[in-house]
Design a protein around this nucleic acid. Sequence first.
DNA 1: TTGTGTATATTCACTAGTCGGTATACTTAG
DNA 2: CTAAGTATACCGACTAGTGAATATACACAA
Lengths: 195, 195
Amino acid sequence: MPEAQSPTRKRIVDAATRLFYAEGIGRVSVDAVAEEAGLTKRTLYYHFKSKDDLIAAYLDGRDQPNLKRMAGWFEAEQGGVDSKVEAIFANLARATRHPKWKGCGFLRTAAELASMPGHPAVKVGARHKSNFETWLAAELSGHHIEGPQALAREIVLLMDGCFSIMLIHRNPDYVEAAGRAAATLVRARMSGSQA
Amino acid sequence: MPEAQSPTRKRIVDAATRLFYAEGIGRVSVDAVAEEAGLTKRTLYYHFKSKDDLIAAYLDGRDQPNLKRMAGWFEAEQGGVDSKVEAIFANLARATRHPKWKGCGFLRTAAELASMPGHPAVKVGARHKSNFETWLAAELSGHHIEGPQALAREIVLLMDGCFSIMLIHRNPDYVEAAGRAAATLVRARMSGSQA
DNA sequence: TTGTGTATATTCACTAGTCGGTATACTTAG
DNA sequence: CTAAGTATACCGACTAGTGAATATACACAA
């Protein structure tokens, strides 16, 4: 029985994270992950019962870092809520320009597992996306916004639209456009506003 | 040299379409496509030079049918442009309830090929998405809408957000929410309107 | 009408390599 | 001595792609 917080386990997850994100879960073999981690496949299978298990662990490890990154962008912006939302997209547009950027790992994994809706990794992804939506709704509350939950969902849709379409067009203009649309939706729900 | 419109070639593309959409391009072998088409792998390789070539042909065959489906939904709605746009999402929400629905084939393929941005199938997908955006912008023009191109792009982002997030949550409420957001964005750009 | 050449289209059998997963044995720390 | 952890070596199944032979159909000459 392997320890949940074993350093070896962490090395495996780190290696899996690098490879799975860069190449996609279907294009990376367990052998490749083991080699990247500097150990043998048998050791990997001592710490994880299957590749599916490892995929879920990979996504689980990305949940909090991703949320903190988004929250950091949101909080760093000094303007109103609409500006804070738009700032997330502005930072995202910058991130997509990085050569190693390959979209959202959660969405890409869900796309690869579209024929297995109950896959544990998809459940981890669903939890992450819900976490983000809930966090955003909380941030939007108490700013004279009607329906912060509904607004958070609309913004999530725009953001995931960015992630997906960027893999097709590779054109950050789409992310900027999404940011403007998100700001429009925020202002449309601000009481006393007419645009 | 195989004919471009050979009936055998069509059988292969049809078989590939069924399997690739249902399982994903990475989870379907060339052998499986050949068997589904009722011929041998060697024959398949007579008509297509590689699996990548076949994947591109699969997506190319979905371009026009997909566009016509969207256009049909748009035109069938009797109300204003905002209602017509929302109708696309309403129909989409219904489509996502079908058990065989597995998201957008173009986006899923792009997600699987995220590490190969120049892949011919990704280019086919980019052309399809551009075709849709261009068609929508044309439909939005001439209805007292400011910036129909920018609006079409925002709607595309919401739609692709639906496709992606539905693979994670499998909850059609997201599609309905996207439809309402799209209608809001349309009305925000209608001259003389205050919402 | 018959025979022959040629291009298209299809099959069987195969390669060389990769896949996820495991049986077995060894090392090392308590 | 025991048990956790790691290594070597292997499994059967599957992978994309190919070599060589062959079936089919039609053009054209005798």
